[in-house]
Nucleic acid binder design. Structure first.
Lengths: 190, 190
DNA sequence: ATCCTCTTTCTAGCGCTGCTAGGTTACACG
DNA sequence: CGTGTAACCTAGCAGCGCTAGAAAGAGGAT
């Protein structure tokens, strides 16, 4: 038994290494630099080994994205927990979201812009995704009024996401970012 | 002179054909299907001819995107012009924006999600881009209150853009789309 | 200790991509 | 009717994601 256990452990370790290396490479040189050949070289195995762990390159990106969702959820939770009252809670959670997108742009890209197939808004949705959305929702809830909380959360999220993607793609001038965020917050705090 | 004129006209025609064919191919099979080889085959010239018109594939996509911006601006203008009073004008313009993104998703992708290098929010910004944004701004203006109109427009735009991209990427359930749009509109009509 | 088996891993290669160097063809002009 | 130049194409480079089939290695049985 122990031998097989060791093998499975080694496999899991190697899989983790693939994910970690893919992430590091993406963060250092962008997703375009993440090729199966370079990944193989970095993990010191041949290319086909990657395909014994993942269905393809997209699946590797999805695995990195999942890590991102876990971290984002943790940061949103921390921001909400640290907020003194519900009034500022939304601003703090929003700031955490924006901070995440700004400091980990490559991760954000894999999570939201690239079309890795992670199911959203469904029972099969992985837990970290639901948790992240949940933090946003709880920050919105006290301010939701008569609106459906989920729908209102989705709209707020879309606002944040739109601001981040348009700014990063050079569609919005970065210098006015804070002012725009303040306007968005005011719309939803009212 | 006439000969050279004819040649220049032919060149312009061919350049337009490249753009048109790229767009058709993208709309029929998606941007992944738009390869330089297939484009060359469709315009019945060899591959290098493309590079005598455009710096590379990205530049071809940018040209298609520019067509998209022109059409979007026209549709937004029409929607605003047809709106009876400023109160409904924003809703109509927003509906036109959403309609554009939904009926021409491939164009929308080239315009906003792919990173073609078109300068935004700058004096060098091509006219169609400025016009499209201008239509949104004029629809927002009567409702802006004390906010900076540009900033408020940008936030509203980000909201629309976020809703469209998240929905298209499968991050938001399509069936609640109208409800979300209504919430966004209410936030900005207040 | 040796053989066999089955898993793991690698080598090699397919068909594709964007892009370009260098040779060929066609055409306006003297 | 030659000639210089501009237009164009053939062929190929280096890279991509992915995979078939050979080689190597580890475990169990004799």
């Amino acid at each position: 038994m122990s031998i097989q256990e060791r093998r499975e452990r080694d496999r899991r370790d190697r899989e983790q290494r693939i994910i970690a290396v893919a992430r590091e490479l993406a963060e250092a040189e962008g997703w375009d630099a993440v090729t199966t050949r370079r990944l193989a070289e970095l993990i010191e195995y041949s290319q086909p080994v990657l395909y014994s762990h993942f269905k393809g390159k997209a699946a590797i990106m999805a695995a990195v994205a999942l890590e991102g969702f876990t971290e984002l959820a943790a940061e949103l939770r921390a921001a909400r927990a640290a907020a003194p009252d519900p009034r500022t809670s939304l601003a703090d959670v929003a700031a955490a979201y924006v901070g995440f997108a700004e400091t980990r742009p490559v991760l954000y890209e894999a999570m939201f812009t690239s079309d890795v197939d992670l199911t959203f808004a469904s029972p099969q949705t992985p837990a970290p995704l639901q948790e992240g959305f949940g933090e946003l929702r709880e920050a919105i809830r006290p301010l939701a009024g008569s609106d459906d909380v989920d729908a209102r959360t989705e709209v707020f999220w879309a606002g944040l996401h739109g601001l981040m993607t348009l700014t990063r793609a050079g569609r919005l001038p970065p210098e006015d970012h804070d002012r725009r965020l303040a306007i968005l917050l005011r719309q939803f705090a009212a």
